[in-house]
Design a protein around this nucleic acid. Structure first.
Lengths: 196, 196, 196, 196
DNA sequence: GATGAATGAGCGTTCATTCAT
DNA sequence: CATGAATGAACGCTCATTCAT
């Protein structure tokens, strides 16, 4: 089995363990068991240390997540539409890739600072600023609003991770409406225009 | 020293340790050291297990937090005003009781499901429903909106816990505006009426 | 059992293990077994890490060794006599405290640089310089000669540690003679005067 | 690549690793890396176990060392001169083949008893006895004196291995003088005759 | 011969917990 | 009540060694 494949297999097992038992349960022993490995030494063989595995999981999960979301965003023709696509894609991802989503939630706090950069935050802030320049969004502080938008996404994610009952479809609709109300110029036409 | 006082002392030390080093660093050894105890055995003596201590910390922090917030809410004369007071009080609490706030953030994921109940969530949903009945709020799904409101609060809290730079005053203003836009009927008078 | 006593017991067990099996065999597991402890964790409980135990062993063994030697040196009335007493005492120590001597040999290379200072080397060099000032010793480089004297001591120690057959009594006599010949002014009276 | 060449390559890499990081750092991984091998398996393939590699290193280093020294000894015309040549050659070797010398120092304690035989010791004792028979040396116990002479050599070697500052040229001169004083009949002419 | 992934024993260390005093 | 030494399970990690390719 090739190195690449083994690493991927281990990361996949880690994602599963993280999704099922949370970070605390994600010991090498458990991950090895789920991956069908006979020794935790093999994980150390492929990853220099636990931190590297954690970072690899974070990178993988983040990569898949970002791919999923970006694919659904670049069809947008304006900042507001892109924002809506972002929210929709995020909730969809949670519905379709539950394990990845929960694993991200569990692993985020433990990823290296360098790795776990605020890239997402900055991109969101930029998108919001762009929408303000285009006149689509009202005059809020873009950085703070970026915190809010990501917080809404993370709140849904946390809810999912905590196994609380949650209707993701309704959640998606309400989320889009709420963010539009909160960000766009208050003409009332937009929110109303979409029937919500 | 009375049982009550000892427990309170230990919980207070735990809060400090949690705020400073996060959950991972919150070993009995460290907590005992901060509390000025000479043995971790004393912690085990007063708390049946680590889980009980964690739950006690969660209960204490939650109690103080709720007290702070409720005190500032019941002056409100309507649901919208109460909601605004809730948001303001939450951010204020983070500013004035940083350790308690961060400890809450750190400990929440590890508190017993039974303890960490969704009481807050339900109360928020009830408030929102009340506002809808009174005609103050628009027609959203109250449970979902409650998730969102709490998510916004938690997002700010997480930002604080991660030691990211954050201007709590601006955050408070933007948060209130955003939630008002997202919840009240779109007359535009309210948000505008407060000079933002 | 008091902390002090436990530490001493563990150090004593470590000395025994080192003397019997060398540094490589001196695992916590083995030391704990020899000390009659039920868990290696207890060693970690009393010593912050393996390095601290190693340093404690080095300190203990060095302390006993130095005490033994110094007691027999300060009776000397001149540098030459002190030097002779040093050599004699060293060999005697190896004979009477075999385990401590071998443990010192095994542990020396692994003691912290700070701990394993060249104190002995410097003291020897000072003694030699003093003897030169007094006219007892010939004109050699004191630092280099100190290296030699300590090397002779260490050579005997190594021989002991390697379980090679060695007659310590004869060794003591020959060592004293050799060092006197090598250090004192070549009158010939001294070495001869002692019946060799 | 021939078996012989591979073994030599691995041994050479081991010597380098031993000289740079000491025995503790001489893992197969490191040796393979220095040797430019892609797998530690290759080392196990060519050497039955770590012990065999260690013994091979000891043999190689000892062989080179002995060759260097013997080449400079057989020019001597008497035991005293040979002894002096031995000492000189030893110190010269340390200066000119630092890595081999330090590797010898590091590996000696771990070589098999069988391999690490006392051949050198016996040869030195024989040389000393020869000198005694020829009237060049005084009446000491040859075996013990051999221990001393080798101890002096090893002391310098250890100093080198410990990265302590050491002036090998001065060391060489002082060493020759000391050993001559300690071994030859005390006419005083020799040591003085060489101007030291 | 050479590769490199896989193995499994052993390591030092941390931790919550227990219990005799 | 309080102490603090003792316990033992679990952890991440390293290493020489094996073996299918």
């Amino acid at each position: 089995m090739t190195e690449q494949a083994r690493r991927a297999q281990i990361v996949a097992a880690a994602v599963e363990v993280l999704a099922e038992g949370g970070y605390a349960a994600a010991s090498f022993k458990r991950i090895a068991a789920v991956a069908g490995l006979s020794s935790t030494g093999l994980i150390s063989y492929h990853f220099k240390g636990k931190q590297e595995l954690v970072d690899a999981v974070y990178a993988e999960v983040t990569h898949v997540f970002a791919g999923f979301v970006l694919e659904r965003m670049d069809r947008g023709t304006g900042a507001a539409e892109e924002l809506r696509a972002f929210l929709t894609a995020n909730v969809r991802f949670m519905a379709e890739h539950r394990n990845h989503a929960i694993a991200l939630h569990e692993v985020r706090a433990h990823a290296s600072a360098a790795t776990a950069g605020d890239g997402d935050h900055r991109k969101m802030a930029d998108l919001l600023r762009e929408g303000q320049r285009a006149g689509e969004f009202r005059d809020f502080d873009a950085d703070t609003m970026a915190v809010f938008v990501m917080a809404l996404r993370d709140g849904v994610l946390a809810r999912l991770g905590n196994r609380a009952e949650i209707d993701l479809d309704r959640c998606e609709r309400e989320l889009v409406t709420m963010v539009e109300l909160a960000t766009t110029r208050g003409t009332g036409t937009w929110a109303g225009g979409h029937g919500r």
